[in-house]
């Protein structure tokens, strides 16, 4: 395992710009401003996790999956702690993972009839989207199973 990829400048840029974008998302999606610190903490955690897992694993799908698992776990736990719907924390946490750049380059390649670039970027866009989706689904399903089990246990008492 090597940490050659690590650059404090890169990490700081990702974190700061990601947090600025997330704050914008909080305002655009009209999230309660009192919940913004928790939402931003979730986003920071996700960006950090994504940065290190991408650097260490060098795998687009897996790194996004791991980051979305962390984001969803954080959102589900904080949702229960603060009695808020999980989506309030989940959306801002995963917004930085959304493959906007790759989607753009896929389109640009399509317009330029560059089949190779289209295939590479298109595949990566799908990989990222699938990674995020699978991560969310795994964790939310686990949480709903745990909650159903708890409810069932409570009804037996």
């Amino acid at each position: 395992m090597s940490f050659d990829f690590f650059s404090i400048g890169d990490l700081a840029t990702y974190c700061l710009s990601g947090l600025c974008a997330t704050l914008g998302f909080v305002l655009v999606c009209h999230i309660n401003i009192k919940k913004a610190p928790v939402a931003l903490a979730g986003a920071a955690l996700t960006v950090l996790w994504w940065y290190f897992s991408l650097g260490l694993l060098n795998n687009v799908f897996l790194s996004n999956l791991l980051a979305s698992v962390v984001a969803t776990t954080f959102a589900e736990i904080m949702a229960r702690v603060t009695k808020t719907p999980a989506i309030v924390y989940l959306s801002p946490a995963v917004i930085t993972l959304v493959p906007g750049g790759k989607l753009y380059y896929t389109m640009a390649a399509l317009v330029a009839s560059d089949t190779t670039a289209f295939k590479i970027n298109g595949r990566e866009t799908i990989e990222v989207a699938l990674g995020i989706a699978v991560g969310i689904v795994i964790v939310s399903t686990l949480f709903s199973l745990i909650m159903a089990q708890k409810k069932h246990a409570a009804s037996l008492k």
Partner: peptide, 13 residues
């Protein structure tokens, strides 16, 4: 204001 921050932030990101 949200759009301003979001778009600016992601451009750097």
């Amino acid at each position: 204001i949200g759009s301003l921050l979001l778009v600016g932030g992601f451009t750097v990101f």
